[in-house]
């Protein structure tokens, strides 16, 4: 499991990447983020973009949509975890079926949040993710 040297409650800031094909959702997540330690370093609209952005920004925390054009979220999770095992990924998806959730967790996701969500639900999920 992830043994990131930085602790969430510590001073060090975390780099956040948002992956979602919907502009609204990207901005929504960005706006809802109440954690000062979490600094947005980039947003991506699909898996391929996410991987590219990962190479440039090395994020610690990722929110990941599942149904996206080009590379989908499940595959992207697998790739990201392979590149950086300590990465923490919150799946944010409208797909509410169990098999999808299990699949995502198995690929290495750390949390699962169903769309639509409230600000509170998102922040709780992020807090849970960083625990």
């Amino acid at each position: 499991m992830s043994t990131n040297s930085a602790t969430f409650n510590g001073k060090r800031s975390f780099k956040l990447m948002i992956v979602d094909d919907s502009n609204i959702m990207r901005r929504r997540i960005e706006r809802s983020n109440k954690f000062e330690e979490l600094e947005l370093v980039g947003t991506a609209g699909n898996g391929e973009e996410a991987l590219e952005l990962f190479g440039k920004t090395d994020p610690d925390v990722v929110t990941m949509d599942l149904t996206m054009p080009r590379m989908d979220g499940i595959e992207c999770i697998g790739r990201l975890v392979a590149l950086k095992p300590s990465i923490r990924i919150l799946v944010v998806s409208a797909l509410a079926d169990k098999a999808t959730a299990v699949e995502a967790m198995e690929k290495g996701a750390n949390g699962f949040l169903n769309k639509p969500f409230t600000d509170r639900q998102l922040n709780e999920a992020i807090a849970e993710l960083m625990r």
Binding site: I24, S93, L95, A96, K115, P116
Partner: peptide
């Protein structure tokens, strides 16, 4: 939201449909 562009509108109904689809799944 303060972007009311055509694309944002499309995104939004897409998200609603997404939610319906997720519920159905």
């Amino acid at each position: 939201e303060n972007d009311f562009s055509h694309e944002t509108m499309r995104d939004l109904v897409g998200e609603v449909a997404n939610t319906i689809s997720g519920n159905a799944r």
